[in-house]
Amino acid sequence: MDADVFDRALLAELRRDGRATFEALAAAVGLSRPAVTARMRRLLDSGLVTIVGVVHPSVFGLTAYAHLGLTIEGPVSPVADTLAEFPEIPFLSAVAGRFSLIAEVRSADQAALAATVRRVAGLPGVRRVETGVYTEIRKDTHFPPGPYEQSPIDDADRGLLAHLRRDGRASFAELAEGVGLSTSAARSRVLRLLESGAVHVGAKVNASAWGAPVLTGFEVTLGGDPAPVVAVLEGLEQIEYLATVVGRTDLIGTAVTYDAHETLKLLEDVRAMPGVLGLEAWTHLDVRKERY
C-alpha cells in the first residue's frame, strides 16, 4: 500500500488528534471533506492504521521507565521468549548491532525498576545489561504527549479508557452505552481525561504499510545542554520515539525510514549536529513484543 503526501499529512494530523473532525482534518491537509472521509476509510479498512487511545502509564501506577540493551551469549530466541513473559516489559525487539535485544521496562517506582533489571541480568544467557533510565519521554506513539495532571480515576473512567484503547474514534454515544452513562456525562468525562493528559487518542501506524521496512534505534552522547538537539530531533518526521535518559547515554530514539540511504543521511545529520559527541545505532530485526 503506497502513501502519498496527503496520506502522510493526514496521518500526521491524526497522530496529533485522533478524534479530530473530518472538517478539521480537511482544512488541515487542504482536501475536501469527502476526500478526507474516503482516505480515512481506506486507511482504516486496510488494517494497517488504527486510531487508539494511549493511556498514561501513571494511570496504572507505573512511574519509573528504562531502556535496556542486552548482550546475549548463545541463541537470542530462548532469552527473548522468557523476557516476553515479563509483564513489566511492554516492548522487546531482537536487533542487529552492539546489542542482541532491546527492551523497555515500566515499573511502579525506582526500587521495582531496579529489581526488574536485576532479574533480567540474572537470566541464563544474558551476558550484560546496559541501562538508560528515562528522565523524560519527549515523543512516543505509545505515550501521551505533554504533562499528566493526576486526578482521581473511577470505574466509569476506567471503562471509558478501555473503550478508547480499542477504538479511539468511538462516538460519545457509543462510549456512553458501553459504560452505562448518558452521552453528555461520557462526553464531559472523556474531555476531562484528554485535557488532563490521562489519555491521548492518535493514529497507530504499521511502518511497513508505507514501504518503510527500516526501523532503526539509536543513542546519542551529548557534550552539553540536550535541549537544542532534542528540539530538532523531536521535530523530524522520521523520529517516532525520543527520550532523554541517564545511564549509558543521553538520548535514545527510534527512526522509521524508507530505505538505507535515508537512514544513513538521517544518522549523518544527527552526528553533524552541534553538541553531539557520538551516536550508536542498531537495526530492529524482529519486534517480539509491543503491548502497551
Rank of each mutant, 00 (worst) to 15 (best):
G211A: 07
A207S: 14
G253H: 09
T221A: 13
E240P: 00
N206G: 01
A207D: 03
F218M: 02
A203Y: 12
A207F: 13
V232S: 01
V214Y: 11
G224F: 11
G247S: 06
V205N: 10
D225W: 04
I252Q: 07
E234M: 14
L242E: 12
T244C: 14
R248H: 11
G202S: 13
D225T: 01
E219V: 06
G247C: 05
V232G: 01
L251W: 15
E237G: 02
A227L: 10
Q238S: 13
G197R: 03
A207Q: 01
F218Q: 00
L251V: 10
S208K: 04
G197M: 02
T254C: 02
D250T: 02
L233N: 04
E237Q: 13
F218D: 07
G202T: 13
N206I: 04
W210Y: 15
L233A: 08
A203L: 09
D225S: 07
R248K: 11
V199L: 10
V232E: 13
V199S: 06
A231Y: 11
H200Q: 13
G253M: 05
P228Y: 00
L215H: 14
E237P: 03
K204F: 14
P226C: 11
V220W: 05
I252W: 03
A231P: 01
W210S: 03
A198C: 06
L242T: 03
G247M: 12
V214G: 05
V205Q: 12
V229C: 07
V205R: 04
T221N: 10
G211V: 12
W210K: 00
Q238E: 15
G211M: 07
S208D: 05
L236F: 14
K204I: 15
E240V: 05
A209L: 15
W210H: 12
A255V: 06
G211N: 13
G235E: 15
G217I: 02
T244R: 15
D250L: 04
V245Q: 02
E219Q: 12
V201R: 04
D250E: 09
Y241H: 07
D250M: 04
A243R: 13
P228T: 08
A209D: 05
G217F: 08
V199G: 05
V230W: 08
L215T: 12
A198H: 14
G197W: 10
T244D: 03
T254E: 05
V214D: 10
W210M: 09
V230T: 11
A203T: 02
V246H: 02
G217N: 08
G223R: 10
L222F: 08
L233C: 11
A203P: 12
G247T: 12
E237T: 06
V205Y: 02
V246E: 04
A209P: 00
